[in-house]
Simulated scan of single mutants.
Amino acid sequence: MEHMRAGELSCLTGSIVRQVTDFAPWLRNHGFRAGVPETLTAIAALAELNLSSINEVCSALRSIYARTSAEWGIFPALFEQYFGIREAGLQEKRRLQPDELIGGTDAGENAECPPLETVKGILAGYHPNNGERFALRADQQVLKDVVVLTQLAVRTIDAPRGRKWQSRGREKIDLRQTIRSALRHSGEPFELKMRRRRPDKPRIVLAIDISGSMKPYAPFITSLAWSFTRVRARTQIFLFSTRLLRVTSLIAQKGVTGIPYSDLPGLRGGTQIGGSLALLLHRYSNLLQRHTCVIIISDGFDAGHPEQMHISMRDLAARVGRVVWMNPLLGESGYEPTSVGMSMALPYIDAFVDVHDVTTWKKAILNGALCSAAP
């Protein structure tokens, strides 16, 4: 790993180095991909810059940390929030001490993160609780109501025809049922039983966002996921944050008692919706058919590349019968789906609904959010 020498920092004070060192973790909480290489580059650049010119410092750090168009547009606002609006937090006159060359402070973790404003119609994938992990446990007080509503919802979802019999436009005699009925009358077939079309079970794929921003809604969403394992449907459940994890059996067995952190390996802080959906398309393509209803439960804050989100949603919508996006923030006053992730996903969504409790779940069902037109 590259290291900076004390001689290269002779023109910087200890306060400046600490502020720049803590800037990368603070940016990561706002959806940026910033690490040690960017920090070393920023410190080296500050040694050559005129620190009295805040615009010059902002432009230099912007070229180092911003990698996408969304990050480039929102970086000046983040820079002003962290360093202060045109106030020189870089002017403290104190020499760098030898014991300060290693390590840093936790100022970046404790820095207050005010709510972000939309910049040029783009909001980066950020939430104050991003990176926070939590256990999943269903809300037992609403389980009964949720299961009843989920049974109603499944009956509205389009299902393929069963394999045993395909209607040809005329009725056929069901020989097995006719013989069974005749046994009640000494073997005389008094009534001919006709075959009936038996539809297959609806096919449902649940993709649930468990990043830190979804923590307030986790009990109800876990209850909703568990209820889909108790109805007549072919259901597969996935959790995602920075990667995708299949948890159908885990939700069915431990959704009520609680799922600890140890049972969710590989799910880290942050949200990469596009990358997770791309993994779903690549690894579990057999689940995505023309009769499948894909339900995505997320607030839409995506820290991944916008193009990845666009491609994943386009391919998903072309392969399945219906895409339903449940956003628990949609019911909040003043909320607009202007984040990068939601902006890329909206053109490919068949139903965009607010579901965060029993009332909103019932309203979504009655409004036909899960009713899919026959392909």
Score class of each variant (00 low, 15 high):
residue 300 G to R: 01
residue 332 E to Y: 11
residue 189 P to K: 02
residue 322 R to G: 05
residue 342 M to S: 08
residue 59 S to T: 09
residue 215 K to W: 01
residue 68 T to M: 01
residue 211 S to W: 02
residue 156 T to V: 03
residue 13 T to H: 04
residue 56 E to S: 13
residue 217 Y to F: 10
residue 314 R to H: 14
residue 9 L to Q: 07
residue 357 D to N: 15
residue 24 A to T: 13
residue 241 S to L: 04
residue 81 Q to G: 03
residue 321 G to K: 00
residue 198 R to L: 13
residue 165 W to N: 10
residue 58 C to I: 06
residue 38 E to M: 05
residue 159 A to N: 10
residue 178 T to L: 05
residue 6 A to M: 13
residue 353 V to S: 06
residue 84 G to P: 09
residue 13 T to G: 15
residue 142 V to S: 12
residue 166 Q to V: 10
residue 160 P to C: 04
residue 308 Q to L: 10
residue 194 M to C: 08
residue 127 H to F: 01
residue 227 S to N: 04
residue 253 Q to G: 09
residue 2 E to K: 01
residue 358 V to A: 02
residue 368 G to H: 02
residue 212 G to C: 04
residue 309 M to A: 13
residue 306 P to D: 06
residue 328 P to K: 01
residue 314 R to G: 13
residue 216 P to L: 04
residue 50 N to A: 10
residue 69 S to A: 13
residue 91 Q to E: 13
residue 353 V to M: 06
residue 110 N to H: 10
residue 359 T to P: 00
residue 335 Y to E: 08
residue 283 R to G: 01
residue 353 V to W: 06
residue 232 R to Q: 14
residue 373 A to D: 07
residue 289 Q to G: 11
residue 6 A to Y: 12
residue 171 E to L: 11
residue 170 R to T: 12
residue 47 A to V: 13
residue 20 V to I: 15
residue 123 L to N: 09
residue 132 E to V: 15
residue 70 A to R: 11
residue 192 L to S: 05
residue 320 V to G: 01
residue 5 R to H: 13
residue 273 I to V: 14
residue 329 L to W: 02
residue 77 A to F: 03
residue 348 Y to H: 13
residue 42 A to N: 05
residue 34 A to P: 02
residue 332 E to S: 14
residue 335 Y to D: 08
residue 319 R to K: 15
residue 8 E to M: 11
residue 221 I to Y: 04
residue 362 K to Q: 15
residue 88 A to I: 08
residue 204 I to T: 09
residue 275 G to H: 11
residue 180 R to G: 04
residue 323 V to K: 14
residue 177 Q to S: 15
residue 304 G to K: 03
residue 352 F to L: 09
residue 142 V to N: 06
residue 356 H to V: 05
residue 74 I to L: 04
residue 103 G to W: 11
residue 97 Q to D: 11
residue 310 H to N: 14
residue 349 I to P: 05
residue 295 I to W: 02
residue 247 V to Q: 02
residue 206 L to V: 09
residue 327 N to Y: 08
residue 11 C to Y: 03
residue 216 P to H: 04
residue 311 I to H: 15
residue 355 V to G: 01
residue 124 A to F: 02
residue 210 I to R: 08
residue 214 M to I: 09
residue 253 Q to F: 11
residue 31 G to D: 02
residue 359 T to W: 00
residue 350 D to N: 15
residue 261 Y to W: 10
residue 169 G to Y: 05
residue 297 I to E: 02
residue 168 R to F: 04
residue 143 L to S: 09
residue 213 S to T: 07
residue 161 R to Q: 12
residue 96 L to M: 12
residue 362 K to E: 13
residue 109 E to A: 07
residue 357 D to F: 03
residue 372 S to K: 09
residue 181 S to Q: 14
residue 48 E to G: 04
residue 305 H to N: 15
residue 338 T to M: 10
residue 223 S to D: 04
residue 281 L to Y: 06
residue 50 N to T: 10
residue 300 G to C: 07
residue 177 Q to I: 03
residue 273 I to C: 00
residue 238 F to C: 12
residue 7 G to I: 11
residue 170 R to N: 03
residue 55 N to T: 10
residue 289 Q to A: 09
residue 122 I to P: 00
residue 132 E to R: 15
residue 349 I to A: 06
residue 76 P to A: 08
residue 322 R to C: 12
residue 14 G to V: 07
residue 1 M to D: 07
residue 341 G to W: 00
residue 154 V to K: 01
residue 186 S to A: 08
residue 303 A to S: 15
residue 12 L to N: 10
residue 358 V to N: 00
residue 347 P to I: 11
residue 49 L to S: 07
residue 199 P to S: 07
residue 19 Q to M: 11
